[in-house]
Each structure stands twice: as C-alpha cells, then as structure tokens.
Design a protein around this nucleic acid. Structure first.
Length: 266
DNA sequence: AATAGGGCCAACCGCGGACAC
DNA sequence: CGTGTCCGCGGTTGGCCCTAT
C-alpha cells in the first residue's frame, strides 16, 4: 500500500490511498472526474471495468460506476429534496420498502444513494419512536390503502384487453408524464404531476374510500403557494398534508362525518 | 474560542443476479 | 450445468461542516 498527498477542491490536504491491489481509493480528484467524463463521452456508460485500461484511471470499475451514477451524470438534479419529492419518497417507501433504486426511478435526477441518505437522515430516526401518533398512523393507513387500491387498479388494467393501455403501463418508464399517471393514484399522482408540470394551474389525483369510491384531490403548484409546502386540494378546499392526515385520523375515530374528509378510513 | 454532537453526503463493501463461456 | 466476470443494489462507514454549549 502506498500513500500520497494532494490538494482537494477546498484547498485542504487529503491523504490518498492506493490499495495493495493497485486501485486508488478515497475522494475523487478533479482530474479523475475529467478522465471519467471523457471516457463516458467517448464510450458511453457501461463496461466499467474497461475504464482503468482505456481512460488511464487507477480506479476499479465499481468505483467508476458509482462516481458517474451518483455524482457526474449530467442529468442529476442538485439541491434540496422538495416537499413534493419527499411526499413521493414517503409513499413509495411505504409501497416498496428499501428498494431505493426503484424509488429513484420515479424521481428524475435523483439517485438511489441520495434518496437512501435522505431517508436515513430524515425518517429513520423517527421510526424509532415507540408509539406513532394518530396522524402518523392515519398516514400509514392511507399509504397502505392507496397501495392496495393502486395494485387492484393496475391489476384491472392489466386484465383489460386494451393492448395500448397495457403497453403504456409497462412501457411508461421512459415517459415521465405518463409514467406518473400510470403508476400513481391519489397524492402520489398529484404530487408527481405537480412536480413534473409547472404550466397548469393545478393537477388532480384520487384517493379511495373503503367502498372503493374515488375521491378527487387537487395538488396545487406555484400558483398556490401553500401547496409548495406540501398541501393538496379536495372537494372541501385546501389542506396541508398534516391537516389532511389529522382529518383522516379523526375520521378513523369517527369524530367527523366520513363524507367530510378524505379519505374515509376504518 | 474550544469542543462535543449531530447532520449530511460521498464512497466503500458485500452480496446476489444476469450473462457468457 | 458449473464457473467466472460484470454489474447493480442495499447497507455501512468515514469525514466534513454546522450548531449548540
């Protein structure tokens, strides 16, 4: 193993490590980044184990792939996770669990690593709380219920003979707008639609009552400032997500008429 | 001003699936 | 069918930075 000293981007000295295997490890330098970017421009993504040979990088294929996917890719979205994205993360995590790459596919420009880190820092510790409060329980119920109804709906669509719909369901991963509509209902669809569309005054979605009734909701965009903080519209007006889940929890305990709030839980 | 603690994020590690031979 | 290689995924670690004390 050999060691060297170099200067990082912020001017501090970093100790670089070259493993016994010959592969460099540790933080990437700007020169290495440039070599990798040039390699991808020339050869495209993939064949990562060839990078060291063809680009002159002393990094193994895994390290190169990780650097590209999580940091250098040009389509990466920088900046904080938005409330809409957070809503999607929460709901997709309820649906998929720790399948970060699956969740990341629904958030263009975000990486599985980023979402995983975000979840761990923002939500993981909260789940250690011994007892969930009513709104959290209601939220969980909503997520489970929507997951159930969505799966039911998808199953119904897949059972339909209409091949166009079936194909669009299966093939929408390359079309963000359709993808969200095909994949989500309720707040998921609304949040995703609001996130992907900045031109319409509002976007809509559905949640479902116990009887299977569709309950229309509208997720505002920048025309509705409150919506930016994570809120939604339904027949009764504007709700913050917190209000929405509190109302749902109240409905679950029978404190308010079920038809006044959405969704109707049991 | 010093320091402890937590948040955040880039990077590494181990594992398993897909594929070629 | 067995083996080796490549690749992707999820879990974990290490270090920087910020904030509270």
């Amino acid at each position: 193993m050999s060691w060297g000293i170099s200067c990082s981007s912020n001017g501090t000295a970093v100790v670089e490590q070259e493993a016994a295997s010959g592969w460099r490890k540790g933080p990437w330098t700007a020169e290495e980044d440039k070599l990798l970017i040039d390699y991808v421009k020339l050869h495209g993504e993939g064949r990562w184990n060839s990078v060291s040979r063809l680009a002159g990088l002393k990094r193994n294929g895994k390290s190169c792939r990780l650097r590209w996917v999580n940091y250098l890719r040009p389509d990466l979205k920088r900046g904080h996770i938005t409330p809409q994205e957070e809503t999607i993360i929460v709901e997709l995590h309820a649906r998929w669990g720790n399948r970060w790459s699956t969740i990341a596919r629904s958030l263009p420009g975000r990486t599985d690593n980023e979402i995983k880190n975000y979840w761990r820092t923002h939500f993981k510790k909260k789940t250690k709380a011994p007892l969930l409060d009513a709104s959290q329980k209601a939220r969980n119920r909503l997520l489970r219920r929507q997951q159930f109804h969505q799966q039911h709906k998808e199953q119904q669509q897949l059972n339909q003979p209409d091949m166009k719909k079936r194909i669009s369901l299966l093939d929408d991963t390359n079309n963000d707008d359709n993808y969200h509509v095909a994949q989500f209902s309720g707040t998921q669809e609304a949040a995703a639609a609001a996130n992907s569309s900045s031109s319409s005054s509002s976007s809509n979605g559905s949640v479902y009552t116990d009887s299977g009734e569709e309950h229309r909701i509208f997720f505002g965009n920048d025309m509705l400032p409150a919506a930016e903080e994570g809120s939604l519209w339904d027949d009764e007006g504007l709700w913050s997500l917190e209000e929405y889940f509190h109302a749902a929890a109240a409905a679950a305990m029978g404190r308010v008429p079920a038809n006044l709030v959405a969704p109707n839980f049991c």
